[in-house]
């Protein structure tokens, strides 16, 4: 009854008339394609920061942390406060956003923003430690279903606390902050307009963190211990590695990465109630596509989902939110162990 008259209007929709083919043609125009792909990669990088923690915690602790999305949200909210503190007009402000591009002050300002993101992510470390040592540690030996209840309970508590502290209005940095970053020319130098430099900033910083993460796991001693623990917990213990400390470290690392992802997203957009839940569900998709517990898989999964979802907004906007789950279902049916299997041996 309600729907019939709407259907009439819907018939007018140009996009639905022309369908997916025209959407594809639109996407394949070079400019659109490049810009949309860059958008997708940026989104993919952020997804990777969230999913990396989720997948490493899963791979090593064998815990699916449902509260992980809230750590990402918390990172964004904390960054709104820390960032407002450091670059605002208050007494503690290190510097105000420069009003026009100047190599020295602009890059110094970017440095302050990154510092704010780092501080925010570091604030999440003790929170992660408490979550692991107080709540999760006692239930490692118990039925898996309890970790789902436990981490969901933590999700509810953190989400409620965020609203308690910051309220329900979106939190964001002053627009002048973003303008100051965008004033630095980046993609414009390549002759590509329509990609603000804030996107470049997020991509570069996330890339550095991502590369650092791989370096940490493959080249440092602690990283190799963690991997060894993932492969064979008993063997690692026999060699004198403390699994307790390893687990705490891994969880804290996950919290740091998620928080850092949230803080970087805040620079570009705003912290919203509910952002943690959608991030959580999307990072499930990422780690399933990549392979549960696989770090390399998380990279690929995040980029696939990020880019695909952005392409979808051009090809067929109504499928934007269904697309990731369709991919997840297909991967689970065709290659149930994910694109890269499990983590540990192959990094």
């Amino acid at each position: 009854m309600v729907t019939s008259s709407i259907a009439l209007l819907e018939a007018n929709s140009v996009l639905l008339q022309s369908g997916i083919i025209e959407g594809l043609q639109n996407l394949l125009q070079p400019d659109t394609f490049i810009v949309q792909t860059i958008n997708g990669i940026r989104f993919g990088f952020i997804l990777f920061l969230i999913a990396a923690g989720l997948t490493v915690i899963l791979g090593i602790l064998d815990v699916l942390n449902l509260a992980h999305g809230e750590l990402y949200a918390l990172g964004a909210y904390v960054a709104a406060s820390v960032g407002g503190f450091l670059v605002g007009e208050g007494t503690a402000a290190i510097m105000a956003p420069p009003s026009s591009f100047d190599p020295v002050t602009s890059f110094a300002f970017v440095g302050v923003l990154i510092l704010a993101a780092l501080i925010s992510a570091l604030i999440l470390v003790p929170i992660g430690v408490v979550m692991e040592t107080v709540f999760i540690r006692p239930i490692y030996e118990r039925d898996q279903v309890y970790q789902l209840v436990l981490t969901f309970a933590l999700l509810l508590i953190i989400a409620n606390m965020i609203e308690f502290i910051w309220g329900s209005n979106p939190q964001k940095l002053d627009l002048s902050t973003k303008t100051a970053v965008n004033d630095i020319p980046t993609f414009e130098l390549l002759g590509l307009s329509g990609v603000p430099s804030i996107v470049t900033l997020i991509m570069v910083v996330s890339l550095v963190v991502g590369v650092g993460l791989f370096y940490f796991f493959s080249k440092t001693k602690t990283g190799r211990i963690i991997r060894a623990t993932a492969i064979d917990r008993e063997m690692a213990t026999a060699l004198g590695v403390s699994p307790d400390r390893t687990f705490t470290l891994v969880f804290a690392l996950g919290a740091f990465l998620a928080g850092f992802g949230g803080a970087m997203e805040l620079v570009r957009t705003a912290a919203n109630p509910g952002m943690g839940e959608s991030a959580l569900v999307l990072s499930f998709v990422v780690i399933v596509v990549g392979g549960l517990g696989s770090l390399r898989g998380a990279v690929v999964g995040a980029l696939v989902i990020g880019v695909l979802q952005n392409w979808m907004t051009v090809v067929e906007p109504s499928l934007e939110s269904a697309a990731p789950f369709a991919v997840m279902v297909i991967v689970l049916l065709v290659k149930p162990e994910g694109l890269f299997g499990t983590w540990g041996e192959r990094t």
């Binding site: 999700l155 409620n160 609203e163 308690f164 910051w166 329900s168 209005n169």
Partner: peptide, 14 residues
């Protein structure tokens, strides 16, 4: 709280 009144339903359920 600092940001005004907040329903604590999710906290309590958690």
């Amino acid at each position: 709280g600092p940001a005004g009144e907040t329903q604590m339903g999710r906290f309590i359920t958690g």
